[in-house]
Design a protein around this nucleic acid. Sequence first.
DNA 1: CGTCCACAGGAATGACGGGCGG
DNA 2: CCGCCCGTCATTCCTGTGGACG
Length: 404
Amino acid sequence: MELDKDLVFNVLSRATSRIFLNREVLRPDYIPDELPHREAQIEELAQILSPLLRGERPNNVFIYGLTGTGKTAVTKYVLKKVSEYVVKLSAPKFLYSYVNCRHEDTTYRVLASLASSLGVKVPFTGISTAEVYSRIKRALEDYGGVFIVVLDEVDFLVKRVGDDLLYKLTRINDELVRAKVAVIGITNDIKFMERLDPRVRSSLGEVEIVFPPYDAIQLTDILRDRASKAFRDGVIDDSVIQYCASIAAKEHGDARRALDLLRVAGEIAERSGCGSVTVEHVRKARVKIERDMVTEVIRTMPYHGKVVLLTIALAGGKFNSTGELYIRYRELCEVLRTEAVTQRRISDIVSELEMLGIISARIVSRGRYGKTRYIVLSVEPSTVLNALAGEPRLGWIVKNAGDR
DNA sequence: CGTCCACAGGAATGACGGGCGG
DNA sequence: CCGCCCGTCATTCCTGTGGACG
């Protein structure tokens, strides 16, 4: 079969890549052996966790920093090192569980994830959260050591289901005799703490660590370090690395973005048969990353979310207010012969699109003329239209609009 | 300096689909 | 197979609010 041939070809050509030595080190979830410019945070976190070597419960930690500032990498790095150390010293028992709350954004799923890292199997659905909770407690008591719960992007969880679970987790120690639980909460939302119940805030924020964004020089450092491991010698010029760093520096010092850019640029170079990665490949990578992001957003959006996106794209990507957007959305619904949802719902969809980074929706107050959101598409309208063209029930609109 | 617009966004609720324990 | 539970999408009702206008 043709497809099989391609798969084999791909695997083999990757193994003999002219570009990559080790592509893995550019992946977002890769944890490097060294984290340049994060020494202070590593030390701090290690310090905070050190009581567990004596079998004591470390303080709960709250970690704040913008996306791509190394929060997750540092946390995973330190926990990994601590585990290794604990094993080597046969120190008191220590387990941890890493949960990404963007993915596991319900109480049930977080608990299910915790349960599974304690070796307790729970079904996807079907039993109550209370039941999962008590199974976890039982497992913890059987285990009888220190258990660290890492809740990455914890703001997602709280936004969806409130801080009940956080409250329970920070209080679970009162119900435990043998085991001890500490929570590490990670977020990039600066206003997150304000929304918490004061009791949760004080216990989660026993200690706080702040991750400042990287500047262009630091980003260049990081990229150089990774590029030297990822690419073959002479494949990538330092100027290309600096170009990636400068793009990422403009986007709030996001190292993940910079690494993505580098990896995708490398993949494009490789596929086009070039022997080196150029600035032009980086530009193409930027476009590709954007296109993939849009495709992914559209894939996961409910139907009316897609209609809203289409409304915005057809209008050229800008709306002065949610109200205006809503009017145009209703018109589009009529053309589509679809029942429109309420403006309240559209408001939520707009928030969702904003969180996913496909639009920006700044709140503006126009005094006497009310308060609303100023909505701007963050990507090219044509990118959205292209991505929607294949969509059932509304792709035809895109084609008709293109005819004009 | 108070009013009042045009919403933001919280809370409660429900319909519906899907999965599990008993 | 039933009853319970969960997640998702949506509605209804609601309180809160920055700042131009009068």
